[in-house]
Nucleic acid binder design. Structure first.
Lengths: 272, 272
DNA sequence: GGAGTGCGTTTCATTTATGAAAGCCAGCTT
DNA sequence: AAGCTGGCTTTCATAAATGAAACGCACTCC
């Protein structure tokens, strides 16, 4: 009969000790005095120590009981902290992984809700969703893993953009950055006329805005950059679908489902 | 069905979440998977939130579950800290209240034990023991409260002491200090020849050791001050009994009982 | 000094919690 | 495709916990 006592029973010990008896602790805790009496007895047995002096005036503490109380007294503030914590339901985060432009596009259009909060995470590996590193992902093709749920949202097309029609040359991603298809296409077709490079596509757009050269952009991204104008037709080689992906099970999580619906609305309402 | 969940169940939630499923948590916690399954279900009901995504690969966390886990993760170190705390039984303190000289006398003679540690507390009010502010007290008369257990130890007698026989005058307690009978006796009989005063009896003895005057001391205290010599017969007006007092119930507390026995031995073996 | 009060424990019927075994399901292996 | 494996849930009999009521005890009040 030497089990480790439950934390809740230790809390009751503190309450009994501080109340000076079972009656007071019963009022504080809502546990009946018979139960408290038995719990304190088994606690003493499990710990192998006499904690209380039972007298007609209530429960007094023994020397050992006092030593224990000193160690456990901070369980009471912990308990109140926990109950407060459980009352307030802080808005849960839904983790979204997407490419830079898609993330920026969503970030500008997701309405602020109190039912869930968006959390954009770096799309480091393609495995993010499978490994539960993210709840929602936006991919450029239908996922082949059977445990991923996916719905098609829109067709993505790319064009060349520039600050004005007389801008010459191109801006490209640095060679040491990850090379998405658009970057490879640019190097393949205009690699001999690159006027500037940057390590991120957002910086690339900034260069184009400064007139440093023409830039390949998905059309939807250009919608948020009114100072860039299309200077080419859609690049047929780069067009692709867009898929909204999530763990199949995650669809049963209300925040995730709400986020999926809202994101789908944003991605389908906004054409091209 | 909206009860506040038990702290131990919250710990189990963390264990399930961190283990990624019931099977792992069952190994960690020693609770069977059926019980864990039910506990997690009722936890979700009580909190009114979906915490888990139940899939064939185990338990995954929902967005809300992740938010809760972040708040509760530190319950695991708390639990380990508590179990370690309950393993080691730190030596309990027995609180002793006594007059200055008796406390000093005991402090020099109490053997160091690992079953209990002495803690001398200020004897501010006579009610210390009754109000459970101390476990053991040494009084100069039999207590009249019926709930105090008392045993007589020895007869205390007082003499005048001085560094040498040719020292003149007396040293006395300051008037603003509490006046024990010995101080009152000195003021009554030699109040016109006081050469120095101090606020505590220990300082008084120091003055006498410096030759500042004669001092009234209980004889047992003088035993620890070999440089002070008796310069009078015992003062009959000041003799009194000595009583070892404790709460009646406290006698059933092993550390207190051990302390009582050892103190009684010290106080009865050493005569006068 | 006898009734009253406050407190803790016991009794006992009821409720609740627990785990072994069986069942179930999805994915993986052969 | 049949069988296997790992993991969760349900069933069911058993064990444990719970609180109302009764009891006992010491002190207090009149």
């Amino acid at each position: 009969m030497k089990r480790t006592p439950a934390i809740d029973d230790l809390v009751l010990f503190v309450q009994v000790a501080q109340a000076g008896g079972l009656a007071g602790a019963a009022r504080d805790s809502g546990i009946s005095t018979p139960t408290l009496s038995r719990k304190m007895q088994t606690l003493e047995q499990d710990l192998g120590r006499h904690l209380f002096l039972r007298g007609p005036r209530g429960y007094g503490l023994t020397a050992e009981g006092r030593a224990l109380l000193a160690d456990l007294a901070d369980l009471i503030p912990l308990k109140t902290r926990l109950s407060q914590l459980l009352q307030q339901d802080q808005t849960p985060e839904v983790r979204i992984t997407a490419g830079s432009w898609t993330a920026a596009f969503l970030a500008r259009r997701i309405p602020v809700r109190d039912t869930w909060a968006p959390a954009f995470v770096e799309a480091t590996a393609r495995l993010d969703i499978a490994r539960r590193g993210a709840d929602i992902g936006i991919r450029n093709q239908r996922p082949d893993q059977p445990w991923l749920a996916a719905r098609r949202t829109r067709q993505i097309s790319y064009r060349l953009y520039a600050r004005s029609y007389d801008v010459e040359g191109y801006v490209a991603l640095s060679r040491d950055a990850a090379q998405p298809p658009s970057a490879r296409w640019l190097r393949d077709h205009h690699g001999d006329d690159i006027r500037a490079t940057a390590g991120s596509v957002r910086l690339l757009a900034d260069l184009a805005l400064a007139g440093a050269g023409r830039v390949v952009l998905p059309c939807f991204a250009a919608a948020d950059l009114p100072d860039l104008h299309p200077v080419s037709d859609p690049i047929t080689d780069l067009g692709h679908e867009e898929w909204l992906v999530s763990h199949h099970e995650a669809r049963h999580d209300p925040p995730v489902r709400a986020a999926l619906d809202q994101i789908a609305t944003i991605l389908t309402k906004t054409g091209t």
